[in-house]
Design a protein around this nucleic acid. Structure first.
Lengths: 232, 232
DNA sequence: GCAGAAGTGGAAGTTCCTCCTCCGTATCTG
DNA sequence: CAGATACGGAGGAGGAACTTCCACTTCTGC
């Protein structure tokens, strides 16, 4: 039995019938929309219904939730990374950092699935591979901002990640009320990130390390009750 | 059939047999412990098991999750409010505000169920009645802090609630790593709350109103998937 | 100590979800 | 138009968690 090709959407596979390809797009569109609102764990049956296809069709095209998520987020994550590169190209290091903070948070507020993906990096797959490119860029961003003398000297990349997560959380929480209410807290947080002045409080806690952050992700991914989009 | 008394634990009801009362305490203790860690939705069977009693015993004592939660949180919420009163009694308005922010966040980081309760106020029951006493106190706290000239003039009670929620969220997220890691972000946020200086960013967004915050809670309480501890 | 009231455990039934497969039917494409 | 390809949706599997029931045990007051 020649089960040769396997990739879900790559050119190598024989082309889909025209109606099948249209359905595939419908499914991706519906999945993107529903997951942005309800997260990675959105029932597959709901996605199929929203796409106007039967559940079997969804399964035929995407045998597992993981394949659906990967197909869906390859370009969304790329857009997320592109923001980081845009920021890296900005002349003012401080402006670059705050611009990234805003855009990253905004993206996560607008897309709950993206937020979950970034918070529960499963450690393998296309998604994770994209994420690996994030670290050096973010590190540079923080260093440049520090070099301007405006960023608190004790601020690290890991702080950037958590501050960003804080904003995304409050953004998600206030979303039903007003899609941009969270920017009020962006203002406060950004001001708090500025180099100390007479009032500055010394941090009571040491910075966390990247390794600790990764341990946290790994730990989260293995918790029950967390949004699960892939095996294990 | 004389089904006269009904309240769960009040003095009016006939006293429980000694072993039954001991079991009741075991249940409360176990529920408090497990819910602090896993939230309001912790399976009742797990609580019964942790208490070393059968599931029927739990049901006999607390016919609904709501009654269990109310019995459990009456004093915890009182402690939470007591903090607010302690803060209100502090001479320095700024210190009062920041002390409250720290203690409130710390309590929520230490008790996930408390956090959920405060975020999804169901709008009725003993718990809600306690919460009503919170508003005027918090309002005073903010006003006094503003009067010191140190708090940004545009900062409102609702901001206090959300800032606090932000900190609790990041605290919960980093908890598995380090129970006090969140205090690092408390530092940043508190600095960001200080009255503008040369760098201060004007808030891009208008303050939310208390009514909007309440609408948000009501809306959340009716969402599927949210921790539900009472009917409706 | 004993009778009866009070309390107990946990098996079993129920409800609710979501996943995933199967197969008779429909639709494309060359 | 024939055969390959794709479709839909019913329905079984499986897992949580809730809730009830009842035969059995443990207290308490006399």
């Amino acid at each position: 039995m020649p089960t040769e090709e396997r990739t879900t959407s790559r050119a190598a596979t024989r082309r889909l019938r025209r109606d099948a390809e249209a359905n595939r797009q419908q499914i991706l569109e519906a999945a993107g929309r529903l997951m942005a609102e309800r997260g990675l764990a959105t029932p597959l049956e709901d996605i199929a219904a929203a796409a106007g296809v039967g559940i079997a069709t969804l399964y035929r095209r995407f045998p597992s939730r993981e394949e659906l998520v990967e197909a869906l987020f390859e370009d969304r994550l790329a857009a997320y990374l592109a923001d980081l590169e845009t920021a890296a190209a900005m002349p003012d290091g401080w402006q670059a950092l705050t611009w990234y903070l805003r855009s990253a948070s905004a993206r996560q507020v607008a897309d709950r699935a993206l937020k979950e993906l970034l918070e529960h990096d499963p450690g393998h797959g296309t998604v994770s591979r994209l994420l690996e490119r994030l670290w050096p860029l973010a590190e540079t961003l923080v260093e440049r901002a520090r070099a301007t003398g405006r960023l608190r000297r004790d601020f690290t990349v890991v702080d950037l990640v958590f501050v960003q997560q804080m904003l995304a959380s409050i953004g998600t929480a206030t979303l039903p009320l007003n899609a941009t209410a969270w920017e009020r807290y962006l203002t406060i947080v950004v001001d708090g990130m500025v180099t100390s002045r007479r009032d500055a409080t010394p941090p009571g806690q040491p910075a966390l390390t990247v390794a600790q952050l990764e341990a946290l992700h790994a730990n989260r991914a293995s918790q029950p009750g967390q949004p699960r989009y892939c095996a294990r």
